[in-house]
Design a binder for these strands. Structure first.
Lengths: 194, 194, 194, 194
DNA sequence: CATGAATGAGAGTTCATTCAT
DNA sequence: TATGAATGAACTCTCATTCAT
């Protein structure tokens, strides 16, 4: 499973890198052949490393999710849980900007997790959960919000940013509003939602 | 333009209805053939009514956007602009739940508007803009938010609701947080976003 | 077989007329629906009068061939068989100019003559044969040419005129060369053909 | 551009060969699928080698036109320009026998020359022009004929040969008449054409 | 192990022809 | 009888995946 030859390992890495770009631009509808072309390898090489298009997509996502999870876990022990939570939220949204395939993958949160990527969304969700709880304990986030809606907001704003191609400025203001909603201490004269 | 024969009109309506469902589930990648099959008509019948797949998609979207615009305009003259704004926001999010194609269409806000559907997203955006201004004048929404981010939140939460398949409950709570963010009067000790 | 109602007879005639135009322009690849549209009738009406596209094409051709045959027969008794022959040749070539479908039909000279049009090309060929023999008897056309090659020249020049869209001038000069070849009395130092 | 693998080159050649046959019989309306079937390859293989049906047709035509041009140029320096001209004329007509698509292509003499095949008909025409001028200078062809009508006769007789499926004998006699017309020194008592 | 040619299943679209009004 | 809506077969073209080199 661990590739012995160096060139093979290099190829795998390069393909993954290119795939990220290609799928980011064209969404999961982008063609495998373009990945091969841009990676400078034959199409069969792509399929040797990733036996299926789905597998390639998953590998791209796994890498991303692992990245994010790592970051979330690194922030979990922060002395300032409030800023840590908000920083991660903002980072994720910015990171997702323009990455269609990545974004579409958030869908499978609890979904049809058969593949290798299956547990990643759950793990990320849990990591976010940890940050959230800490931030709530620190009084930076309202106690009455739950992970479900926070995750939905995360996904939603990230999706919007990616699909509407918001520039950093608008993205920041959009995120700012959500932050205000999460931080607001007192719920008041809100009209019954729906 | 108005078809004279009853059966044709029925078929057209049935196709449109089915297409809404099919595209809602599979996004715009879903096949025209499935629409035909589920509508119980031959593939050529679909193409008689909608000469192009794109035309079919547009028809579905136009119908939806027109619905939403109508509703937004109906609320524009409300005596209570605040609740009107929030009600429309919530309604749109609920309405979009599960409708992938619809949601994907919000993208083209000012986009490649060539087809008949071209002006709809813009119109909807403008209608939302009207509601927003009124709500701000009434003091129900912070004066410092702009249409851009409100629209982004609208699209984002709708997308999240659709893709994560949130149930009505979670959706309501998610929307609630955004509402708090929009209503919050005083911005305070927020950490520099990014 | 003879339609009793006047409107039906009118429709048939109009369709035939339009079909001639349409097929002339687009060749036999032109669509039946365009014929119907330009004739101002429903597509089903076309198929009522001509049960098959092939039947419609044949009707167009039959009309044309009958026209030509009539003309050829009218010239058969001419006092001046030479000019008569050459006149008919030139007329046919001019007549065919731009009429793709017509021209393509000359193909079936002895061909798969199943349909109603089957005997027409043969009849036309025979009528040309009569003109040719007379012209040869009158000494206006070389005695050693046969109907086969004359017909081939007829078809060939007509086809060329139609497909290359030759204007009347070039057409006339082209035909003139063929006439010289047909009239030439003495065959001489020609190199072995092929 | 030159394919490295032998099997691919063979396939390409076989497809081209079969396509020539298929289009020869059915004209350019013949289906790509039949080409694939007769070549014993999958339909996608045809499209790999020729990305478009039009491209396949063009490849067939280019091959033929290049053949003919080569031959015409080879004859351009002949010591006996008269026989050279007549030989080429006869050769082209024989070569075209039965090849509908090829023949149809002569049409676009100066036509919608966008594709790669675009310049070929023009080149052939020019090559014929050279042969013609030489033959006229040598006194073998009348000085008063122009390339336009010679080309028309070329195309016409070729078309007739192809469509009427003339055997070599009749073809030769037909060509012979045209040759007489081209060679005839004195124009005489011809009736006014048309 | 890398390559790229071959593949077949499907997608969108068109058109001659039939059927219900 | 005239209409035009419905039909399905056929066609061009694409793409993930496999196979021979």
């Amino acid at each position: 499973m661990e590739p012995t030859r160096a060139d093979a390992r290099d190829n795998r890495a390069r393909i993954l890198e290119v795939a990220e770009d290609v799928f980011a631009r064209g969404g999961s509808a982008a063609s495998t052949e373009e990945v091969a072309r841009l990676a400078g390898v034959g199409i069969a090489t792509v399929f040797r490393h990733f036996p299926t298009k789905r597998a390639l997509l998953e590998a791209v996502l796994v890498k991303h999710f692992d990245h994010l999870c790592e970051r979330a876990r690194g922030l979990a022990d922060s002395d300032e849980p409030g800023p840590a939570f908000f920083e991660f939220f903002g980072h994720l949204v910015d990171d997702a900007a323009g990455k269609l395939a990545i974004i579409e993958a958030f869908t499978d949160a609890g979904g049809d997790a058969e593949g290798q990527a299956g547990r990643r969304p759950r793990e990320l969700r849990e990591a976010v959960g940890v940050l959230l709880v800490r931030a709530q304990e620190a009084g930076a986030v309202r106690a009455d919000v739950r992970l479900e809606e926070v995750y939905a907001l995360l996904v939603g704003v990230a999706r919007a940013g990616a699909h509407l191609q918001l520039d950093a400025h608008v993205r920041a203001r959009t995120v700012g509003i959500v932050f205000d909603g999460l931080a607001a201490r007192e719920r008041d004269e809100r009209r019954p939602v729906q």
